[in-house]
């Protein structure tokens, strides 16, 4: 009943790195943290729509490449003092594969 979609293997996302993903018209950014957790956000910074998939991953946030806003990977919310949010998507890793629910 819950539709988990297989995206890629964990190895295909670099550690502390990102990948772009497309689902229909939707652009989604995937992030892999230093401790191998994977998160997914709508690939639009709440500030000026910058592609978060092109940012730098640190700890539990990504820094947008356009104006350095920091967005939390877990919930898509901008870190203070900035305000705004982008949509998060649930992700799970099973036997080395990354799955997303849209």
């Amino acid at each position: 009943m819950e539709n988990w979609l297989k995206v890629c293997s964990l190895e295909e996302i670099p550690r502390l790195g990102t990948r772009q993903m497309k689902h229909g018209e939707k652009n989604i950014a995937l992030f892999r943290t230093g401790d191998d957790q994977v998160f997914a956000l709508l690939d639009r910074c709440p500030h000026k729509g910058g592609p978060l998939s092109q940012g730098i991953v640190c700890g539990r946030h990504v820094t947008c490449p356009l104006h350095n806003w920091n967005i939390a990977l877990e919930d898509g919310k901008a870190l203070a003092p900035d305000v705004g949010e982008t949509s998060p998507y649930p992700v799970k890793i099973e036997s080395g594969s990354v799955f997303i629910r849209l």
């Binding site: 502390l16 230093g34 401790d35 730098i56 700890g59 820094t63 350095n68």
Partner: peptide, 11 residues
């Protein structure tokens, strides 16, 4: 202090 730095110290 941070597990993997930030967008300003890493580069």
């Amino acid at each position: 202090r941070t597990p993997n730095g930030c967008a300003s110290c890493r580069p």
